[in-house]
Amino acid sequence: MIHISAEDIDRCLTHAGLVDILREAFRAGAVQPLRHHHTVERPQGSDVTLLLMPAWSDPSNGTGETYIGVKVVTVSPDNNTIGKPAIMGVYLLLDGATGEPRALIDGQRLTLWRTACASALAASYLAREDAERLLVVGAGALAPHLARAHASQRPIREIKIWNRTPANAEKVAEALRAEGYHASMAGNLDAAVSWADIVSCATLSSEPLVRGQFLRPGTHVDLVGAYAPTMREGDDAAISRSAVYVDTRAGATKEAGDIVQAIKSGALALQDIKADLFELSRGERPGRQSPDEITLFKSVGAAIEDLAAGIAVYKAFNGETGPH
């Protein structure tokens, strides 16, 4: 069994390439049981969430080569106060026929890549083709990946970063500027939402941050945080004004606070969810219908994304393919 580090992953992947890999993965499908959630109570501070996310190649799709993968992830909100990422984890890739361990992959970095690229995959169907202005809400480890991934699919010319702590937003903007992006810190969130063509939100917020009243016609909203029913990033107005799409129906309708709470309040009905990534990737349901339509994509993460990214990294690391 080989060990693949975060730096190895960065050498093995490109954002545009991984978007295409995820597109093919959603077209082909995989077996992915609903992920396991466990709350690890702490006597002091916030509880830790333990997530177990298994998936394996669907033998019915005729691809021949099969793999099994499982990701073990912890989400520790208090890590931000000590300068560590909230999300930690590892990914174990196994041979689908023999069960032999093939690779132990850095789960934190793999999650950043696949999460950002899943959002960019959705944006390839839902964001306007001329979208140039990107707002990233949140300044965690995922923020620069979201900026790079969206820029791989749309002609992003300007990026703004908003965070409750302005200094953290400026750090992300500075890092992106060093890569050649036109990036800056956003001072007022509502004004930045009104400015943006794409709003990509990745926070651990339990209260809505993106308010629907400030969304301009034609905006695409990408909600990545709020992975639990008690969390929320967009308000009811953002949901009710938008054509709503999700990564997976099973996950989003059970775990995503933005969807669960909106259904409970009546701002959204189950039948109002237009499509998931399987349907979009297979062309079974349409994406954006008009230039003025407001679209909203809610991501909670899917094990099929980890499996596809893990296989791609493993093959590139072994020299079976070039960087994806």
Rank of each mutant, 00 (worst) to 15 (best):
F297P: 02
A275F: 05
I159E: 06
R157L: 09
E7A: 15
L146S: 01
A55M: 07
I239L: 06
T49M: 14
A186L: 03
A243H: 10
A228I: 12
E255K: 03
K160T: 07
C12N: 05
L104N: 05
T165L: 04
E179Q: 13
P286H: 11
V136E: 01
S194K: 07
E284A: 14
D95A: 06
A178I: 05
T63F: 09
L50D: 04
F278A: 14
R157Q: 13
P217V: 08
M53K: 13
A103N: 00
Y125F: 15
G45Q: 03
N188F: 04
P286G: 11
R42H: 11
Y67M: 09
K298P: 00
M53I: 06
P291C: 07
H220Y: 09
A127C: 01
G218R: 03
A191Q: 15
K71E: 10
H150E: 11
Y91E: 09
T115V: 04
V221D: 08
T63N: 12
S152D: 05
D197S: 07
A116G: 13
I259C: 06
N318S: 13
G69S: 10
F214D: 12
V19W: 06
T295P: 02
H37I: 11
G89W: 01
I87S: 12
E207Q: 14
Y314F: 14
L126S: 04
L268I: 00
T111P: 00
P33V: 09
L268P: 00
L176K: 07
T203D: 03
M231K: 08
Q271S: 15
D236Q: 03
K264W: 01
N61M: 07
G218H: 04
R27S: 09
S184E: 15
E279Q: 13
V31K: 12
E255L: 08
P43S: 14
A256F: 00
I239N: 01
P144Q: 10
S76K: 11
S206R: 14
E41I: 08
E170D: 13
L146A: 02
H150M: 14
I198M: 10
T66S: 15
M1F: 10
N79G: 03
A302Y: 08
V221R: 04
P286S: 14
K274C: 13
Y125C: 09
A143H: 01
W195M: 08
I21M: 11
W162N: 03
R27I: 11
I239H: 04
T219Y: 03
R249P: 00
C117T: 15
S124R: 11
A309K: 05
S57K: 06
N188Y: 02
V40I: 15
M1Q: 12
V224W: 02
S281V: 00
L92H: 13
T230H: 15
E255C: 08
H15N: 12
